[in-house]
Simulated assay, not measured.
Amino acid sequence: MSEPVMGVGTCRPPALRKFALLATALSLLGCAVLSAPVLAAAAPASDVVYSVESAKASKSLMLDVVHAGKRLVAVGDRGHILYSDDQGATWTQAKVPTRQLLTSVYFVDDKHGWAVGHDAQILASEDGGVTWTKQFEDLKRESPLLDVWFQDANSGFAVGAYGALLATTDGGKNWEDASDRLDNEDQYHLNGIAAIKDAGLFIVGEQGSMFRSADWGQTWEKLEGPYEGSLFGVIGTAQPNTLLVYGLRGNLFRSTDFGSTWEPVELKAARGALEFGLSGATLLDDGSIVIVGNGGSVIRSDDNGETFSVFNRPDRISVAAVTDAGNGNLILAGQGGVRVTSPTGAGAENGKNGSSK
């Protein structure tokens, strides 16, 4: 599956990325080279367009779901941001100053969080996802940010299409274009960024591109990875220096030395090797790892990623992200919205919309 190209001009064919597993999201992505300068500038208040309130928001396309303390926060299509305080049973739609597709969200504590998406937009919340402000956008880029990570309430990074790497040291009041810190002359899309225990930061992207930073983002080293196809995400395990990267056609690799060497992880489904793309992952409190993807794929490891059990949901929905519900169940986000499932990913109950803020 390839992405449609909108607009005119010459550009190299874009590759699949995390949300590219979902056909609905693909049609929203254009093809334009990122501009270089980055200055934090939100739209004037009088020009702000808010996401449309919808009773069906919890059943619309959602691309990420995380915890803000005990609260759940999910982001997705049309600027929708939802939050739940009852383990995913009901969801409240937040008032959000955008109608663009949001691709990723990250909270450093129960209050401070950031969401990123199309038009290189970065939104911020200081109240656990109830209200949001637009910190940054760059309409000239015409391309999305795809992941975000913060070390604390001040220092963070956002990554995205065409090699975008943005950095802040003041909680997002100002964002700096830090793309030149990476050896990425081909401007490969950067799909995921994550912290690895006792090691540093790791970025993965298009064409199997990999970068690591032992000083938490100040300098980066380009690595030769084990795979030449697109990688959609990276997650650290509970063990020091140990991480997993995942991408197209069920490709999953494990490293115990911060990316210096890699071993493939075999994934066997009921009818043979898993061949669906993998798009999102979470590390549970007990050290278990859950990774989700296309075809209703939900895979789980209880040994720090050495082996995985594979479950494919009968509905074969495309799943973009996963987190724990807080009671042993899982929350899946993707095609058809947010769902509460059993710890294996089986069963499904769409959360109900509550009030809107």
Rank of each mutant, 00 (worst) to 15 (best):
G113F: 04
S260V: 13
S213D: 09
F311A: 05
G287K: 03
P314W: 11
S60R: 10
V66M: 00
S35Y: 06
P226A: 09
H67R: 14
S213C: 07
L39K: 14
S54V: 00
D77P: 00
N251W: 02
D186G: 09
K352C: 03
P14G: 05
N353R: 03
P240E: 11
Y188A: 12
L330K: 04
L190R: 05
K134T: 12
A214D: 13
M62P: 02
T168H: 04
L139E: 12
W175S: 07
V75K: 00
L146K: 01
G117S: 05
S143F: 01
W91Q: 09
K222C: 06
Q121F: 02
G295M: 08
K268A: 14
R300Y: 08
F136Q: 07
A20Y: 07
K352P: 04
F308P: 03
T103F: 01
D198M: 02
D64R: 00
P343F: 04
E221W: 03
H67T: 11
P343T: 07
E263L: 13
F211C: 06
T256M: 06
G128P: 06
L26F: 00
D186A: 15
R212V: 15
M1Q: 10
A178K: 11
G192A: 13
A15E: 14
V292R: 02
S342A: 15
W91E: 09
L146Y: 07
I235N: 01
V130G: 01
A281C: 10
I193F: 05
M1E: 10
N350F: 05
D198Y: 02
D257S: 04
K111A: 12
D286N: 13
V130K: 12
H118F: 06
L243E: 08
A269P: 05
K56A: 12
W220C: 11
A45Q: 14
K111N: 10
W220A: 09
